[in-house]
Design a protein around this nucleic acid. Sequence first.
DNA 1: ATACGATACGGAAGGAGGCTCCGGTTCGTG
DNA 2: CACGAACCGGAGCCTCCTTCCGTATCGTAT
Lengths: 205, 205
Amino acid sequence: MGDTTTRRAMRADARRNRDRLLAEARTAFLDHGTDASLEDVAARAGVGVGTLYRHFPTREALLAELLRERFDALAAGARQLAAHPSPREALITWTLDFVRTTTVYRGLTAAVTATLHDPASALHASCETMRRAATALLTRAQEAGEVRADVAPLEFLALVAGASWAREQMAGAEVPGDRLLLLLFEGLGVPDFGRRSPTRSDRSP
Amino acid sequence: MGDTTTRRAMRADARRNRDRLLAEARTAFLDHGTDASLEDVAARAGVGVGTLYRHFPTREALLAELLRERFDALAAGARQLAAHPSPREALITWTLDFVRTTTVYRGLTAAVTATLHDPASALHASCETMRRAATALLTRAQEAGEVRADVAPLEFLALVAGASWAREQMAGAEVPGDRLLLLLFEGLGVPDFGRRSPTRSDRSP
DNA sequence: ATACGATACGGAAGGAGGCTCCGGTTCGTG
DNA sequence: CACGAACCGGAGCCTCCTTCCGTATCGTAT
């Protein structure tokens, strides 16, 4: 539901404008982050602002449309990873994907996070899906004893979102992308001796 | 330099207005976060916007003035903690203070973080001080072998800022304030067996 | 082919904020 | 008390958001 071909077919001009708007919105968000000028988007699409607002009543609605596919893919990935031999690796892998997704547009992390607590937002549905996916993978890793059991799903998401946000801020700085996530999983403290449970990052000499 | 009594004394009316502006700005930021309306601030202070902008050319300048004291206190705290018996505890303690400070106004974490890479900002000086303080405490903890040695100061700050930001977002949610920081230090993964190095949070059964 | 709803369009308009600029006012000192 | 320096106020211009409605366009029933 809410698909691109629902609701008794759109009028041809409407569909054309809608597509143009989405295309322009995408590049605008890419260039200027999630608070790019919507008037600009409309102008570039060769359309009046009214048309934009009719198709997408809110900025979130526009975002939601652009993210639907990515989010669906993420949810599918979670289902698949549920069968991964290592629950810990599964969780980490999915989390890295999640962060990559919420980082495509500058400011997206904030939008997604804010939405988690606001059922009215157009993005809320997708975010809920993400929340459930994360919860499932986290719980499994915890039951397997590979992730500390006293971490609540919301806490986990908060930390991940925080790291994701931090990554956005440090854009261009000398922080290798996934580094923050790995530190998050392993912790800042020094483990008793040497390495703990094997992780990709410490297989080399 | 840049103090409140420098530059050959201010004219009486100027000083009065300046003080009123700061007072109103403080409550405005408290109520509406760091992007409160500056026109509003001016109005409440019984002053024209022009006056506000003359005293504080940018929003950051206003913020910087409000935060100077707190930041100075934080820097002093860092110097004091440099002598703390446990370098790890020292780092943690300071970090908690830091987060509390960058959380007084909603949105402040973002402002402070953005400023780290922008020497032009009025907040930059204070942020640099913080960076140095954090670096010193971190380095000491690392040399004592209490914090993993491969964490760069900027990475550390990024993670802390991220957790701080996350805490802001989850405002009102069921996340106990300092929880995220503690998780950050201890990591999400399960240590090999039971507890690692003793931390406040695991002294009880 | 035509005509007639239903749909969709465009942009004017009104609102909120940010920031600048300069004629006018006030201070405080000689 | 008088005069220049310092300071003030807010009109004005800008950008962006969002709503609203007269007008244009589409698709179909005739």
